[in-house]
Computed example of a mutant assay.
Amino acid sequence: MMGNVWRGSESEVRPFGSRRAGWAVGAAVGALAVGLFVPETSALAAGPTLAPHEAVYDLSLSRAQAGGVVGANGLMNYKLENTCAGWTMESRTVLNLFYAEGGRMETEWEFVAYEGKNGEDYSFYIRNSRNGQVDEILEGDAQMDGKGGKAHYKRPEDNTVALPEATLFPSAHTLAIIRAAQEGQRFVAKTVFDGASKGGAGLVTAFIGKELGADTVPDSADPLLKTPSWPMTIAFFSPKKGNDGEEGTGVPSYEVKVRYHDNGVAQEMEQNFGFFSLDSKLKTLKALPEPDC
């Protein structure tokens, strides 16, 4: 889910108000489990699987505080592909934000990542642009083992940060919260790394609502949507310490309300940044071929 959500750089968010404490989402639909991520050849094989797909979402303003953002429109494109040994995720969001005092700002967020199904390997490239000018690029890779892991950033500067034991990458996290929903759990809290913050991994919590059966989807809907789903509220906390949301205390950076299907497809989303919220409505959905592994 994580790679499927527009997060925006900190410089893009701050003009609308103070940045709320607490991961600024991500698939997001990309990128959300109970316990350590395990290889697909073991227990995971009997659990949820991610359907390779490509989705386009219309973005619009759903709520805003007075005196800030008065309008928004844009598109979010998301693609998830299965490569047998892992997943590749691509997301591109173009968002126009309109201000009460006049003027418009166009932001663009690009996310490309590869994640090994063994939960050990991850690589990422993220580019934030504002009004046609590149604002920030984050690029690097990460590795996990049974005792923890580390993330190595190549850009914006060479840096290595430690990752706590049991840190999940985006697709593993998506599978995790879906598995928890299938098991009837109502709350999941996990440490997640996607590369979108220079600070490393951050806490992500998920409140899971009552299951919605396949019969709640119209007969004319895409087959990918004719599966059980759950409404969820997912909160992303900053990896920074202190007043920015250490260990989930304080206010998250933002929250996402999403209807997640058991195959990893997000039917609808609302992203709440505190001082404004965005609606993400599914516009087009296409299944992608499974690999011949």
Rank of each mutant, 00 (worst) to 15 (best):
M1D: 12
G3Y: 07
W6K: 01
R7D: 15
G8I: 04
G8C: 03
S9Y: 04
V13G: 00
G17Q: 09
R19I: 15
R19Q: 14
A21W: 09
G26N: 08
A28N: 05
V29F: 08
A33L: 12
G35K: 12
P39E: 08
E40L: 13
T41N: 12
T41W: 02
T41C: 02
A43K: 13
L44Y: 12
L44Q: 15
A46E: 15
A46D: 15
P52K: 11
P52D: 05
E54A: 14
E54N: 07
V56I: 14
Y57T: 09
D58Q: 10
D58N: 04
D58T: 06
A66G: 06
G67N: 04
V70E: 05
G71N: 11
G71I: 10
M76T: 03
K79V: 15
E81D: 13
E81Y: 03
N82G: 10
C84D: 07
E90G: 14
S91H: 03
R92A: 11
R92C: 03
R104T: 15
E106D: 07
E106K: 08
E106F: 01
T107M: 10
E108Y: 00
F111C: 05
V112G: 07
Y114T: 14
E115S: 11
K117N: 06
N118F: 01
E120M: 14
D121T: 09
I126H: 03
R130G: 11
R130K: 11
N131W: 06
Q133T: 15
E136F: 08
G140M: 04
A142D: 03
A142W: 01
D145C: 05
G146P: 01
G148D: 06
Y153R: 01
K154P: 00
D158T: 11
N159Q: 07
T160F: 06
A162G: 11
L163S: 11
P164K: 07
E165Y: 02
A166M: 07
L168M: 07
F169R: 00
P170C: 12
A172V: 00
H173M: 09
Q182I: 05
G184Y: 06
Q185N: 04
F193D: 00
F193N: 01
K198C: 03
G199D: 13
A201I: 01
A201H: 02
G202T: 09
L203N: 03
V204C: 08
V204P: 03
T205S: 11
A206M: 05
A206V: 14
F207G: 09
K210Y: 05
G213Y: 04
D215V: 07
P218M: 10
D219T: 08
A221T: 08
A221H: 10
P223K: 12
L224W: 13
K226W: 12
S229G: 11
M232R: 02
I234H: 00
P239A: 08
P239E: 06
G242Q: 13
G245V: 04
E246L: 09
E247N: 14
T249D: 08
V251P: 02
Y254H: 05
E255A: 13
V258C: 02
R259H: 07
D262I: 14
N263L: 12
N263F: 10
A266I: 13
M269Q: 04
F273S: 00
F273T: 00
F276N: 00
S277E: 12
S277A: 14
K281T: 13
L282G: 04
K283D: 09
T284F: 04
T284N: 09
E290Q: 15
P291W: 07
D292H: 13
C293A: 12
